[in-house]
């Protein structure tokens, strides 16, 4: 018997055949094919044997102990977190995209793209123009004093 036929016989037993035509065809096969009928009988007997005879298994521990573990897990899961969740105010969330734009603006301003050549530039944005080709510089910045000192040293040709 072909595997396909075997599985059709089983599907017939389980009432899983797709169409009425299939049901009629397999019923006809069972009526005329001895091997198919024998297979059907065997499958049916096995199914009947299992029907309503599922092995009974009992919980291997006491009901109270079993429940106590479930209750603990439920309580653990439902306990509120001790750390209050951080909630960002709506206006901060709304302004967040603007912060990025502001950063880009500041960078551009710092690099002199914006307001280039304008008189309103802050003192700390003044460029030091160095016309000496062979030169070096040392800078010092004091956070407390809020100032930066730059020594520029030029080398003159002897």
């Amino acid at each position: 018997m072909k595997t396909e036929t075997i599985l059709e016989v089983q599907a017939y037993l389980d009432d899983e055949l797709a169409s009425e035509n299939d049901v009629k065809r397999v019923a006809n096969l069972l009526a005329h094919d001895e091997e198919a009928a024998r297979l059907f009988k065997s499958l049916k007997a096995t199914r009947q044997l299992l029907e309503g005879n599922e092995p009974e298994v009992k919980l291997p521990e006491s009901g109270d102990f079993y429940w106590s573990k479930i209750a603990r897990a439920i309580e653990r899961d439902s306990a509120p977190s001790k750390v209050a969740p951080h909630v960002t105010p709506w206006w901060v969330r709304a302004l967040a995209p603007l912060a990025g734009v502001a950063c880009v603006g500041l960078l551009l301003a710092g690099s002199g793209v914006l307001n280039a050549g304008g008189k309103a530039r802050s003192a700390y944005l003044h460029e030091i123009e160095n016309s000496v080709d062979d030169s070096s510089g040392i800078s010092f910045h004091s956070q407390s004093q809020g100032m930066t000192v730059v020594w520029v040293k030029g080398y003159e040709n002897p």
Binding site: E54, P55, E56, V57, K58, L59, G63, Y66, W67, I70
Partner: peptide, 11 residues
């Protein structure tokens, strides 16, 4: 509910 059905679910 657990007490009623624990054996079936465990099984």
């Amino acid at each position: 509910l657990v007490a009623r059905h624990r054996d079936k679910i465990y099984a």
